[in-house]
């Protein structure tokens, strides 16, 4: 379980943000197996929060516990980083090696895992993200979505309990975005991996079990996608979008039709419209 208790953070003095808190009193509990999406507009602190989960940043105030291990404890740093895999936005800037399988092997090599065990983990991780066929390829010849899946495999090879993805689809085309999301969903549903997805695409957040909405370093809304997105007006006032399905329902309601407003998936949306006909 990940526990964040009254977390505050501000960038070191001398920086532009010297006075303002980037994170301002955050409390979260994330249960094993959960799929949590964190949304918020630029500068809401969501990436800063993500960097606290594996000790890249340390709290200025409050605590972050990973399975009751304190991230502020230097001695536990590598164990925490092994348990919390982190995938970043730009796939090019997180691939280290010139061959896919060598890159996936990077983390277990760092951890001093025995060669046969590394082989096993690399094969498993590449199969889990559907990149096993490309294991001997050079990363720069892969598409954006494929590179990002390799990056996910590189993290999986540490056998983490949690995966934090910091806007993993922001630089991808729609096809790549789909590939990465399907991979993340599969890991959550089939491998029971706990997933924390930082994103600004509401369609992605709609797939999660729970959505956290951040603004000005605080969590200002949370709940199931249904519970959150039904408050479309509040979200819009924060400069956030709502999924198109919800958008459509609001438009229909405004046109005087009696429809439910919490249709997150396209199927629910279709059913609701069918009721009208």
């Amino acid at each position: 379980m990940i526990q964040v208790e009254n977390l505050t953070y501000r960038y070191p003095k001398g920086d532009d943000h010297a006075q303002t808190y980037v994170l301002d009193g955050i409390d979260i509990k994330i249960q094993p197996g959960e799929f949590v999406a964190v949304v918020g507009h630029n500068g809401s602190g969501k990436s800063t929060l993500a960097k606290h989960f594996n000790g890249i940043l340390l709290p200025a105030g409050g605590k972050v516990y990973i399975d009751s291990l304190d991230t502020a404890d230097r001695a536990l740093l590598f164990e925490i980083r092994r348990r919390v895999g982190m995938v970043f936005q730009n796939p090019d800037n997180q691939i280290v090696a010139t061959i896919v399988e060598e890159d996936v092997a990077f983390a277990p090599e760092n951890l001093g895992v025995a060669p046969e065990e590394i082989r096993r983990r690399v094969d498993w991780a590449l199969k889990a993200v559907g990149m096993y066929d490309k294991r001997m390829h050079a990363p720069h010849l892969l598409s954006g979505g494929q590179k990002q899946r390799v990056a996910i495999a590189g993290v999986l090879a540490m056998t983490p309990a949690y995966i934090v993805l910091d806007e993993p689809t922001a630089m991808l085309d729609p096809v790549g975005r789909r590939e990465v999301l399907d991979t993340v969903l599969k890991l959550n549903r089939q491998e029971h991996m706990t997933v924390i997805l930082i994103t600004h695409f509401m369609e992605e957040a709609a797939l999660a079990d729970r959505v956290l909405v951040m603004q000005d370093g605080r969590i200002c809304m949370q709940g199931t996608p249904k519970e959150v997105f039904v408050q479309a007006r509040a979200l819009k006032s924060m400069g956030l979008d709502v999924p198109q399905t919800i958008e459509l329902m609001y438009a229909l309601k405004a046109a005087g039709l009696n429809v439910a407003l919490d249709t997150v998936t396209a199927e629910e949306c279709a059913e609701e419209i069918m009721k009208l006909i």
Binding site: N54, I56, F78, R81, R82, G85, M86, F88, N90, N93, Q94, V96, F106, A107, N110, L111, A151, G154, V155, M158
Partner: peptide
């Protein structure tokens, strides 16, 4: 960014 990603992978 690469340094950050490498550190995250222990």
């Amino acid at each position: 960014e690469l340094a950050l990603a490498m550190e995250s992978r222990c």
